[in-house]
Amino acid sequence: MTIEEQDILERAAAIGASTWSDALDELGIFGTIEGIPRQSGSGRMTGFAVTARELTGHLGDFEKHDFAVGQLIAAAGPGKVLMVDMGGARISTMGGLAALATRNQGVAGVVIDGACRDIEEIRETGLWLSSRWVVPTTGKTRLKLLPPGCDVSIGGVSVSQGDLVVGDDTGIVVVPRARTGEALAIAERIRGLDEQLESRLRAGESFAAAAAAVGYIPDRNR
């Protein structure tokens, strides 16, 4: 990872998903993932996307080696977030053992537009993981991993390899890699306004007065 990428991740980790969403609004970018709740892990997760798409089918449609969960895990590492596009299928692509291996590899997080299983085991690993579903149904002979790195769709958001991903208790936001610098600058400005507003509110000012004073919400009477 480059020094620039490390700097981006350190700065991004200080900013919540809601603030990132506001920053993307200013840029006219839709990047808020919908319908994929966090199932495991805690705190804020930040990393660069490693994208993967899996074909889905019925029991016996594919060979066991097509499942290729080891290849999926090996594609990521520290500072990376696995973004797995299964088209929302209710089939598990990651269980407890795979989650343990993923955690051991230092992967920042996993987001699955599909399902995981063995959720108790996954939670024991502490891996930050979100999935649309939790089901017992294995992906063996039901899933086929395509070559990682392709563009995918996760929770209604288009995701490309290397995009910035931020997740916390509120949700998950994807920032296009080419717009990361300007989005980060906007997000830091918004966070600064929030901090000023909070300081005034804690000092006893009304919301309307404090918001107007810091320019949080323009006062039409001024």
Rank of each mutant, 00 (worst) to 15 (best):
T137M: 06
T137H: 03
T137S: 09
T137K: 10
T138Q: 08
T138Y: 03
T138E: 09
G139I: 02
T141N: 10
T141E: 05
R142V: 02
R142F: 01
R142P: 14
L143G: 12
L145Y: 00
L145I: 07
L145G: 09
L145P: 12
L146S: 05
L146P: 05
P148T: 05
P148K: 01
P148M: 03
G149R: 04
G149A: 08
G149K: 05
D151Y: 05
V152R: 03
V152I: 11
S153K: 10
S153E: 11
S153F: 02
I154H: 04
I154L: 06
G155Q: 03
V157L: 02
S158A: 13
S158N: 12
V159I: 11
S160C: 09
S160E: 10
Q161H: 04
Q161R: 03
Q161G: 05
Q161P: 03
D163M: 03
D163Q: 07
L164I: 11
V165L: 03
V165H: 01
V165E: 04
V165D: 04
G167M: 05
D168F: 00
D168P: 14
D169W: 13
D169G: 15
D169V: 15
D169N: 15
T170R: 15
G171D: 13
G171L: 09
G171N: 13
G171T: 13
I172P: 09
V173F: 01
V174L: 06
V174M: 06
V174F: 02
P176A: 09
R177Q: 09
R179M: 14
R179Y: 06
T180K: 03
G181C: 11
G181P: 12
E182A: 06
E182I: 08
A183F: 01
A183D: 10
L184F: 04
A185L: 13
A185H: 09
A185Y: 02
A185K: 12
A187D: 11
E188M: 15
E188V: 14
E188T: 15
E188N: 14
E188H: 12
R191T: 07
G192H: 06
G192C: 08
